[in-house]
Design a protein around this nucleic acid. Structure first.
Lengths: 194, 194
DNA sequence: TAATATACGGAGGATCCCTCCGTTTTGCAA
DNA sequence: TTGCAAAACGGAGGGATCCTCCGTATATTA
């Protein structure tokens, strides 16, 4: 029987957190540069850490893929307040839509590996859908309130349009095309319905 | 400068063709038994050939995956005339629908690896869609002509229904469920609209 | 049957996966 | 500050896999 006189956990070590982030960044770079099958040792090499460190943070390849994806979604969500602070609402929405293209770009690469270990992956999917929906809803509301875009915009429709713009396309050159269409979409949004 | 006095190629060696087929069968078995990541050496072992022979037939893992898929589709197409010869048209259609479940079963496994080497894979997809569409159209037409099924059946709808039955389902037990639904579907088809 | 194009088989070097453990660093308390 | 223990680091190394290369065996043709 053990007492637990000090349930207060120790503060997580700074190097641990730093290396974890380095690994996630290196993994994303590796996926986009080399492909979904980058060797885990190369990811560790890019991050400047030993292979042992890699495996302590991510016990399986799946784990690092999931971490990269989760980080992408979080970035998308966290960008919202920051964009709203530094740009007018309409411009914030526009910039965010371009961030979304980045997000889709990496998602297209790692998607085949995301669903592999079924089960809890559906949780991941559900929570990411929610985060993204909230993000775009907030941005649209603010842009409507500030008069930057027309009033009759359903955030879900806009989201679907962006997904369609990014997914329905052929493999090569989809990204440039998606960005052009996003700009077009934004022009349309700005035509106020008065 | 070389002449080409005898453009007639030599007949392909029998052992080569045989081993190629053995490898495709072994690969399919390996994918379903072990998973998409079976080692290529195990596939060669199952086929009873050396690893060198494997690589001569399939230079990459992708190549063998594609060959397995192509073979599945071909089997589906080739089954049509044979079924029509040995069974009444309605039964032929019913049997073929069950073959289709087998096809989906392996497709579900290897699909993540099919799109990997983009580009010509779209050709593969297009041609397989065509083969399958032709197959089911032929069967439906014959079954209608023989009076085995009702007249108002659109082969494309039927195909979509079968895909939906097989794909919309959860991971475990989908196959049994799909087969039950297929039988149900067939019962519905047999109710003549007169 | 002889000749030769074709296919076979597997050894071996390179790479990758993952574990294990001695060493180093960091946070906390004295 | 200093000392200590928890936490993290790094990389050697065994096992598995990938893929090439080349000597040997076999089918086809004449």
């Amino acid at each position: 029987m053990k007492r637990k006189p000090a349930p207060q956990a120790r503060k997580p070590r700074a190097d641990g957190a730093r290396n974890r982030q380095l690994l996630i960044d290196a993994a994303k770079a590796g996926f986009t540069d080399v492909g979904l099958n980058v060797s885990l040792e190369e990811i560790a090499r890019r991050a400047g850490v030993g292979i042992g460190t890699f495996y302590r943070h991510f016990p399986t390849r799946e784990a690092v893929v999931e971490a990269v994806y989760r980080h992408e979604v979080e970035q998308l969500a966290e960008a919202v307040p920051q964009l709203l602070q530094t740009s007018p609402a309409g411009e914030a929405l526009h910039k965010w839509m371009h961030l979304f293209v980045d997000y889709i770009a990496t998602k297209r690469i790692i998607a085949p590996s995301l669903g592999t270990a079924a089960g809890r992956s559906s949780n991941l999917h559900a929570s990411s859908v929610e985060l993204i929906t909230n993000a775009i809803s907030t941005l649209v509301k603010r842009a409507i309130a500030s008069g930057d875009v027309r009033k009759d915009i359903d955030p879900s429709d806009l989201l679907r349009a962006m997904v369609g713009v990014s997914y329905g396309n052929p493999d090569t050159g989809w990204e440039a095309s998606a960005r052009r269409l996003i700009d077009l979409l934004m022009d349309g949004l700005r035509r106020k319905s008065r």
